[in-house]
Amino acid sequence: MARNFGFAPIKGRVIDFDRNDKRVFEYVLEREPSFALCIGCGGCAATCSAANFTEFSLRKLNILIRRGENDEVRKIVDRCMLCGKCTLVCPRGVNTRNVVFLTREAFEEFDNYAI
């Protein structure tokens, strides 16, 4: 499709916020309202068991979901071991484990419609 006359932003460089699919965000937020409370302090990412071994930041995941950057979310969301340490340090009381759980669930739910 010749949208934007060849000036389409290069994927991965710019967050195309208006076109991004925010269904995952809506799905998670509706079921886990505490998702909205994140202030991006990074406490979760610092304590994360998985982050000891691989690139995984729950804080980043959280923002990626909000921006609808689902491809990147999909790449990392399965790396979480659900150990729950992040939930124990979050100063805002975000139920981070459930956020991961619901994100995976959302992908399963929407996969039929290809995000």
Partner: peptide, 19 residues
């Protein structure tokens, strides 16, 4: 970044973890 864990290494120095 919020510090979320502090431990002590063998030399007795504190090790902090944050993002």
């Amino acid at each position: 970044g919020k510090v979320s864990e502090v431990s002590e290494n063998i030399e007795g120095r504190l090790v902090i973890k944050a993002e």
